[in-house]
Amino acid sequence: MTPFERLKFKMEGKEVDKIPNLNIAMALVAKEAGTDYSTYAQDYRKLVDGNLCCVEKYGFDVVSAISDPVREAAAFGSEIVFPENGVPYCAEPLLKDGYEIEKLKIVSPYDNERTLDRIKAIEEFRKRVGGEIPIIGWVEGVLAECADLRGVSSLMMDLAEEEDLNEVMEIIFHQQCRFIDAQVKAGADIIGVGNAVASLIGPSLYEEFAFQYDKATIQYIHELGAKAKLHICGNITPLLPQLKMLEVDILDFDWMVDCQKIREITEGSTICFCGNIDPVAVMLEGTASEVEAKTVKCIMEGGEQYIAACGCEVPADTPRDNLIAMNKVLYR
């Protein structure tokens, strides 16, 4: 089976020759591409090369145009800092003084260097491995993008004060849809929606401020004929009943979420859930046999809907043997 067939069959509940390996890698991709993080985040050719190395060396079953959360913030007008070997970040939140929405630049994703670079990465993936390896494009979830623009702490206070965020969130949602559209047109099979900040809030604020936008984003991805993957690192256990209602195709879950719990809650749905292997305690610091044991445990506990991955990004210094050990188990 090709990785494309494998993941497609898995999501359709059919038999596969191997449980797909959907590890998320960024710093590791830069390392495999033989470059620094800053170059990897700004040059789609390096991002593509590094991803294809991970497919070949470690058996990853997807390629992914992920690098950092501030591509859309750049398009909105934020000044971005690129540390040589660190994740790019906003020099300061564009909306640090409040929701002055006139500060937000509304541009086509093709007209900003950073969003265009991601689109080009997907086009390049399409040329090189399209139809053979699933291609994942990425957008920030609406709440996460709001945090990128406002600052996480300020947004948290705003949520507690029940500020009216409707206008800014509508603008963000509209722009995210344009970016999704461009990535699907470029050849993305799956769109990953990164909404890590949602793990900091409880069910009531998630319902009030995030649920409807996550739902609408996923619906929009489906309307374009792509699949949706939701990534919220951190402990999402309190949000699971709501996340089930989003009708996402793949739900990522971090190491602190109980695998059996997620299986119970998603029972009766077609959601595949993906993750749970501790990226540090197991993947980075564990032995190959510990990685193998944890992967087997996840497969056993997760059942038919489980897809293999670390709970969050695979650390760059992960021993090669551990990555290989994880992948080998997936063929059993």
Partner: peptide, 14 residues
């Protein structure tokens, strides 16, 4: 105990 979350802690601290 997951009875309150980050926003509630921040406003309590304030």
């Amino acid at each position: 105990n997951n009875e309150v979350f980050v926003p509630e802690v921040l406003v309590a601290a304030r």
